[in-house]
Design a protein around this nucleic acid. Sequence first.
DNA 1: CTGTTAGCGCATTCAC
DNA 2: GTGAATGCGCTAACAG
Lengths: 355, 355
Amino acid sequence: MRPTVHDIAASAGVSLATVDRVLNRRPGVRAVTRAKVEDAIETLGYVRDVAAANLAKSRIYPLVFIIPAGDNPFMRGLEAEIAAAGARSSADRTRVSILTVPAFDSMVLVEAIDKAVSEFPSGIAVVAVDAPEVAAAIERARLAGVPVVTLVSDLAASGRDHFVGIDNIAAGRTAGSLMGRFLGDRAGPVAVLAGSMLVRDHRERLQGFIAAMAEDFEPRVILDVLEGQDDPMLAEELVATCFNAHPDLAGIYSLGAGNRGLITAISAQGPRGIRVIAHELISHTRAALKAGLIDAVLHQDAGHEVRSAIRVLKAKADGVAVIEAQERIRIDIFLKDNLPLEQPGDLPDPSGQDD
Amino acid sequence: MRPTVHDIAASAGVSLATVDRVLNRRPGVRAVTRAKVEDAIETLGYVRDVAAANLAKSRIYPLVFIIPAGDNPFMRGLEAEIAAAGARSSADRTRVSILTVPAFDSMVLVEAIDKAVSEFPSGIAVVAVDAPEVAAAIERARLAGVPVVTLVSDLAASGRDHFVGIDNIAAGRTAGSLMGRFLGDRAGPVAVLAGSMLVRDHRERLQGFIAAMAEDFEPRVILDVLEGQDDPMLAEELVATCFNAHPDLAGIYSLGAGNRGLITAISAQGPRGIRVIAHELISHTRAALKAGLIDAVLHQDAGHEVRSAIRVLKAKADGVAVIEAQERIRIDIFLKDNLPLEQPGDLPDPSGQDD
DNA sequence: CTGTTAGCGCATTCAC
DNA sequence: GTGAATGCGCTAACAG
């Protein structure tokens, strides 16, 4: 039987209240008494029953997720996963709320963070915008004692407690490595379609892609990056123009969220054997993968990210350790041959817009 | 505030004990009373607090893992992950024990299952051997009310509650798809190195590989499968012989656990530009990936599998639902560019033997 | 500074 | 058939 507070109280010759005080590092205990108790804890190998503690405290963990608004399907899928976690929240004593803010607007994001902090939640998960004022806001949250994790897009300089997301440089390298192997001896330049070079994820993916292509394969021209602003119309136009300008185009790496435009442009060209690698498995990319229009899709599992963020925030709030391996978000690689079954709640595309 | 048993007792005009009886479907309640209570449960939207219930019951979940003995590094890594979960077991009210049995010996496995069942654990996870007597043993376990999940290797006919592992046909298809793309226009046959065709996982991977190669790419000779019995010496010999017999060999798919022999044989050949795809990320395959001797490694995350098995068994024991998406074991694809950081406890290779 | 007591939500004796 | 009382391991008033 595991030792309980009673056991350590008896062993140390004190009362439950005193044991509780040292367990929870509360003041009002003499150093000697404290030492006796800590000794007993040590020798008995006591570990606190968190479930019982939470029961006694009637503790719930209010958690705030701050994510970009807009019709980016990945973000909407993320939101759906957060909502799904919220529906399960009674089981894990958690209460999650979602704040959506205009994408890429650091000032509004700062306001949202400050507002969230003012309500003293147990933790905040935020899709960060790469700006100093945001880092400062996160810093304020931490000073207020509110754990913060960055989600999907990191902001290391902020001193956030943890980052929940993939290694985007590695993702770019992976795309480059696959592209190099897929192309083999085939000549011709490679195009890169991004959303915006102002976003850290996109920059890092590009950086990794270029590095891997350069290090491991024969020299190959990589065309100037096309910035589609994650807008399907613009992306389609850019890609179509690129096709015309480079009839010998060998491959395309789409590292952002402009995939519907990309797919439209590729379809319009007919089969030219161009190798295509894109990011995020959503309905459009899934269909294109099946149809052979896209060769591979790199992906991050939004459900995993949300569950991980919740586990990590709870752990930080309780000051306990997490299982590192469980919180590592994988760079999933999907070919048409290892597609997971489509599930009802999976990354919906509610607006019928694009990604 | 969530409704509690008190609320529903008050609402139904009965006592706590009666509420408890209908909650736990115990006899001794009149139909009318039961109806009243169920009504209150329904209208108040009561959901039981499992943590509190477990506290009251002082419940722990004894879980038994039955896995193959021997020096297969994947299995030893699996064992390490089970042990790691055991070390954390106090947190989740779980107590895991490990039974190792000789590999591929169905009779001993049956004995182990029956023995485990006789101690009435909360659940059993077993790396199944594909044999009818094993299916029968699993069936007996379920009749005894003990939930069973198959781990890594399935046995669907057994009526197990759940399978924790990857889709091996999809894994084979994925390997085939990658191989086809990696080879491109390059001519030459492809070899397949397996452990044994008596094992279901290996059969399924081969089947998927051949199907994908045939469906999606130009016709290509796939040589007769080499059965290395997961023995490094034999595997090396078979691969070396194959190299000599087929100077134009274009690729090798290693779908079993004979990778050290494979790697030795490839190294001995010097660079011939042969495309190699293997299974399971362990120290040898990791090194070979970095060195460029292997192009890609398909992998299943043993840590995830163990944690999933525990979650599923607990859920089955409590008769509650699992989060499907969380329990789907991915076919991880590793290139040298997306290798996870090597962690101390990761898939050790304790015996210095092989895989 | 330290101890006593009640209670978190639920399960389980025992009476009635 | 049903209810009252006690306790699981822990925290939080409130006394002293």
